[in-house]
């Protein structure tokens, strides 16, 4: 029987973008919602500050100060603005996103990191700081704090024959059973000096990272999730691989979830989606000793039936 050819559309993270001048990839599947992206000056009407990121990022070229703030504007829309004047404004009910950045790299980063998550505010999803890779049998979601190996895991798993799904942020679509994870943008961002997948080319640079192309290795539509992995900071002398109970998984998912709304609403709004996901999927915590071989250990643990022995020798 001939299957109908999938229809591809421009977008990622489950959001179909109309007339988008920015290259955020092409995927198939029933989108979560439609949105419109315009590259234009963002009107300055900050409103109430909801969230602020103020930190110094150490890069090969020196220290880069990052100051980003999220505002709820008087008309109910949201605005993310950096001190350097780069902004993204989102009106979720109408699906309108306006991006204002000095170049396409910055615009792409603003759109995918803030614009799309903000426009998904009312969608049936959980957005998690994680990377995801797929192979026959399902996708693995690898949740970790910044700098603990999400991107390295994606590159390593891709080299081992897995397909990339998304790095850094993963949009988990809870409409399906089992839940599915949507492809993110077709790049993996790595610190300057670290390569992407073998044969990959850089797509753009930001002050702290280079975005490497992963399109040739990426799935082209949402894929079923089969397990949740919470990656702890490397340490100790043994590999630790322990099953996580559903209540603990709820807690961990909520900790890794992205929340760009009112701070007081965080717990209540993330509770349902986190429970929904944790109750439906097995979860484990992994910790690897500090070693260049940790990706090999990860591959062995994630192999079908692979379990790390508690004595640390895989």
């Amino acid at each position: 029987m001939n299957r109908p050819k999938p229809t591809f559309w421009t977008g990622c993270h489950g959001v179909r973008l109309a007339d988008c001048a920015l290259d955020v990839g092409q995927v198939s599947g029933t989108p979560l919602l439609d949105a419109e992206v315009r590259i234009e000056a963002v009107t300055d009407a900050p409103g109430v500050e909801l969230w602020r990121l103020d930190m110094d990022v150490v890069t090969a070229e020196g220290v880069v100060s990052v100051d980003q703030r999220l505002y709820r504007q008087p008309d109910g829309s949201t605005l993310v603005r950096s001190t350097s004047g780069q902004s993204v404004a989102v009106d979720a009910p109408t699906g309108r996103i306006a991006v204002d950045g000095r170049d396409d790299g910055v615009r792409l980063q603003l759109l995918t990191t803030f614009g799309l998550p903000l426009v998904l505010a009312e969608a049936p999803v959980l957005i998690v700081h994680a990377s995801a890779c797929w192979r026959e049998g399902g996708a693995v979601l690898i949740c970790a704090e910044s700098g603990r190996g999400k991107s390295s895991a994606l590159v390593g798993l891709t080299a081992a024959g897995w397909r990339a799904v998304s790095e850094d942020l993963c949009v988990i679509d809870l409409r399906a059973d089992p839940p599915v994870v949507w492809p993110g943008p077709p790049w993996v961002r790595r610190a300057h000096g670290l390569a992407g997948p073998a044969g990959s080319a850089p797509r753009f640079d930001t002050p702290d990272k280079t975005a490497w192309d992963i399109a040739p290795w990426q799935v082209d539509g949402p894929v079923e999730l089969s397990q949740l992995v919470f990656l702890d900071q490397a340490g100790g002398s043994d590999v630790v691989d322990v099953a996580v109970s559903a209540p603990e998984a709820v807690q961990l998912l909520a900790r890794h979830a992205l929340w760009l709304g009112e701070p007081d609403d965080r717990g209540r709004r993330l509770f349902g989606p986190a429970v929904d996901l944790a109750a439906r999927l097995p979860a484990r915590r992994l910790r690897f000793p500090v070693s260049d071989l940790w990706l090999d250990r990860l591959l062995e643990v994630l192999a079908p039936g692979g379990v790390a022995r508690r004595d640390g020798a895989l």
Binding site: S245, E248, G267
Partner: peptide
């Protein structure tokens, strides 16, 4: 807030944002 899912039950303590099974 109580939520039951797939035979499990979970509680959210809203003021602290902590979850319990």
């Amino acid at each position: 807030v109580l939520r039951e899912q797939e035979g499990d039950a979970f509680l959210l303590h809203v003021p602290s944002g902590r979850y319990f099974g």
